[in-house]
């Protein structure tokens, strides 16, 4: 564990609490992409298969269960409790391509051609693009509630912070996981435009608005 990894994980946790807070306080899931949320459930279920056979390190296990549980809970909230507020018409990014493309990447790049390793690789590639339906929805609406942008920022910062964590581990421990690093870099690049608008507008106290 190093400071970048810890901050990354805390940022990931924060993103989920911000999302739940947004849904609760505005009593609405407007502006939140159901498709991205569904992809995250798929990401966590395929990545954390090792929950079935261990080893169960306390920190990792609690976090894994939390990420699976909270992502399923958000889907439940969106599907049932706050269904009418869901932007179904605009939230129509074709996730089939993301899932299919990630699966092909997982078949090509994996540590071993076994079910769990292919699923682990699949989860990394899918996570790297899972925010696209959310960013697409943002693009379609052209603006977002500030709290929603805080959520997306915290979620993007988590993987961005894993990059210095990997560099640190490579230097200090001689350990490097190329699939995770490469997918993590792609994921951070996917967020680049969003980060730019977030830093130049939201942080300055302005509303998140995209040029028409």
């Amino acid at each position: 564990m190093n400071i970048f990894r810890l901050l990354g994980d805390l940022s990931h946790l924060a993103s989920i609490f911000i999302l739940l807070h947004k849904i609760r306080t505005t009593k609405s899931c407007a502006g939140i992409s159901f498709r991205s949320q569904a992809l995250y459930v798929l990401v966590y279920l395929t990545r954390y298969l090792d929950l079935l056979w261990g080893p169960w390190l306390l920190y990792n296990t609690v976090m894994k269960l939390f990420f699976i549980g909270s992502s399923v809970y958000v889907l439940y909230l969106m599907k049932f409790d706050y269904k009418p507020s869901h932007d179904m018409g605009l939230d129509n990014f074709k996730v089939e391509y993301l899932i299919g493309g990630s699966f092909v990447m997982a078949l090509l790049f994996n540590l071993a051609f076994t079910f769990d390793e292919v699923m682990w690789s699949f989860s990394l590639w899918l996570e790297s693009v899972a925010i696209l339906p959310q960013l697409f929805l943002l693009q379609r609406t052209g603006e977002a509630e500030t709290i929603t942008t805080h959520y997306i920022f915290a979620l993007g910062a988590y993987r961005a912070l894993y990059i210095p964590n990997w560099l640190y581990r490579w230097v200090m421990e001689g350990r490097v996981e190329f699939i995770a690093v490469f997918a993590g870099i792609i994921q951070t690049i996917v967020y680049a435009d969003f980060f730019y608008v977030y830093f130049t507008k939201v942080i300055q106290g302005q509303k998140f608005e995209l040029p028409a």
Partner: peptide
Amino acid sequence: GKEKGGKDEL
């Protein structure tokens, strides 16, 4: 690479 202890990151 993967160690016998499994994946240690989230």
